[in-house]
């Protein structure tokens, strides 16, 4: 019997034959079929080469990403996101981050394990986006770090938040785009990142502003490649 993490409904678990046949590592499911069906994976969609949003037109790069290219001409950015940021994921983030329901850190254990344990991801250093001191005091945890911890993924908290802590979500788009660098590098990790491949991790990619700020610092630390990753786009 599984109790759905999202809606609390109880359901009998189904183990698919193909999972056994292919020796897939079985992580116990934690959401019911209704909630599962509300997830919109991006893996099978045709997406923008830059930010992983579903393609709006025939162009490989969306208009926002073309602007980013102009701002950061020598940063070959490439973002990966797992799911569309739809009503289901909005509810999840609302409950996890703002209502502070810590249990929801487990929701993507399976997907995160699958992604970060894949062969091509080995030897990359995972760096979570930090949260402000004010958010930390309110929430008591960094939601990105907890997602990774829950999935058993090693990470390096190489970035420190130095901003005012005004929530991104309370700013309008223009304010967000113009906001100053909110992070700095933690001295301890500086040397460890040199000539290393890194993945920056956030919960959701909205405008990209946060991740580009973070990437800028990692380029200064001379990381070889910088990828970015989020649960939602």
């Amino acid at each position: 019997m599984l109790t759905c993490l999202c809606c609390g409904k109880q359901e009998t678990e189904k183990v698919l034959l193909k999972d056994i046949v292919y020796f897939k590592k079985l992580v116990s499911a934690n959401r019911c079929q209704t909630c599962q069906s509300r997830l919109a994976p991006l893996a099978n969609e045709v997406t923008c080469l830059g930010c992983c949003r579903i393609k709006q037109d025939g162009n490989d790069w969306c208009l926002d990403c073309i602007k980013w290219k102009k701002t950061y001409p020598d940063y070959p950015f490439s973002h990966t996101a797992l799911f569309q940021y739809n009503s289901f994921l909005k509810e999840w983030l609302e409950n996890f981050k703002y209502k502070g329901d810590y249990r929801l850190a487990k929701l993507f254990d399976q997907e995160l394990t699958d992604y970060f344990n894949a062969k091509n991801q080995k030897n990359k250093k995972c760096i979570p986006i930090p949260i402000s001191q004010a958010s930390m005091e309110l929430r008591g945890f960094n939601q990105v770090e907890e997602l990774l911890t829950s999935a058993g993924i090693e990470f390096y908290p190489a970035l420190v938040h130095i901003g005012t802590g005004k929530k991104q979500s309370s700013k309008n788009r223009k304010e967000r785009m113009e906001s100053d660098q909110p992070f700095k590098l933690d001295e301890k990790y500086c040397k460890q990142l040199k000539n290393k491949r890194v993945i920056l991790i956030d919960d959701v990619y909205t405008t990209g502003r946060t991740l580009f700020h973070a990437a800028e610092l990692l380029r200064q630390a001379e990381a070889t490649t910088i990828e970015t990753f989020s649960i939602a786009r």
């Binding site: 502070g100 329901d101 309110l138 929430r139 008591g140 945890f141 907890e146």
Partner: peptide, 8 residues
């Protein structure tokens, strides 16, 4: 009662 990290 859910145990969770907290700023306290």
């Amino acid at each position: 009662r859910q145990i969770a990290p907290c700023s306290c």
